[in-house]
């Protein structure tokens, strides 16, 4: 077990990189997922179709394949995802700005995949608001956007937050795949490096890596439990 302390810098570096991609991917997925959710509940049939098609594709495809497409199809199309080299943001998240595009490719795949689940979590919240609320808003003359903004979304948030949290926890765990798609130095790839390249025993390394993920996911889960308990009390 001493490997965790002896090579603490390697574990800490891996933790930091995984945390970075998770923060970025969660932010991106929440934004994109919200957009897709609005499409899916829109009164305009073509927009609804686009939203539904998006969810059908990305919810039903293995993340590994989304990663493959991102890592191989984007370069084939001549893109290094340079639009993600966002000024200032790349100072904090240094991998966004590097010439090697694999971090950006992995980020795109994680965002695209997770957004489908974010969309469905948000939509389940919207569906939890009784139809009469939206009808009353329409009968006052509110437009679709006003209806969402002033009546439906403020009430849907409560029912969305717990499923959303589960989606983000799943995303953190899914990020373990990125090491197989060229990203060097995240938490999972750290294990590969220490065991395959340096010959260290697998189990202690794997325990160190597991602790890294648990540090991210357990507090998030505990926070969700708290929110859920508070809502249960409020509902009484």
């Amino acid at each position: 077990m001493s490997v965790i302390f002896d090579r603490f810098d390697v574990f800490a570096g891996g933790f930091w990189l995984t945390l970075q991609i998770c923060v970025l991917a969660a932010t991106g997925a929440l934004i994109l997922g919200a957009v897709v959710a609005v499409l899916r509940i829109s009164p305009v049939p073509p927009l609804r179709a686009v939203g539904t098609a998006y969810v059908t594709v990305f919810r039903n495809m293995p993340l590994t394949l989304v990663m493959f497409f991102s890592a191989f199809a984007l370069p084939a199309l001549g893109s290094n995802a340079d639009f993600l080299r966002i000024p200032l943001l790349d100072l904090l998240f240094t991998r966004l700005g590097t010439d090697l595009p694999y971090f950006r490719f992995a980020l795109i795949a994680l965002v695209l995949y997770t957004a489908a689940f974010v969309c469905e979590a948000l939509r389940s919240g919207v569906n939890a608001v009784s139809a009469g609320q939206a009808e009353a808003a329409r009968s006052l003359g509110m437009t679709f956007t006003q209806n969402l903004r002033y009546v439906v979304l403020p009430q849907s948030w409560k029912a969305s937050v717990v499923p959303l949290g589960s989606v983000i926890i799943a995303m953190i765990k899914n990020s373990a795949l990125i090491g197989f798609f060229g990203v060097v130095g995240d938490l999972s790839q750290t294990a590969d490096q220490l065991t395959s390249a340096e010959g260290l025993a697998f189990v202690p390394v794997a325990i160190g890596v597991s602790i890294g993920y648990l540090i991210m996911t357990v507090p998030l889960g505990a926070l969700l439990d708290r929110i859920e308990r508070r809502q249960a009390v409020a509902a009484r």
């Binding site: 009784s130 009469g132 609320q133 009808e135 009353a136 808003a137 329409r138 009968s139 006052l140 003359g141 509110m142 006003q146 002033y150 009546v151 403020p154 009430q155």
Partner: peptide, 30 residues
Amino acid sequence: RSEVGMVFQSFNLFAHKSILQNVMLGPLKV
């Protein structure tokens, strides 16, 4: 619709808004 008021069987007051806000929302936003 803003010129035709509607009263529902199940009231459908906006649950997250106060009574006063319920009455004010339409004139303010619409």
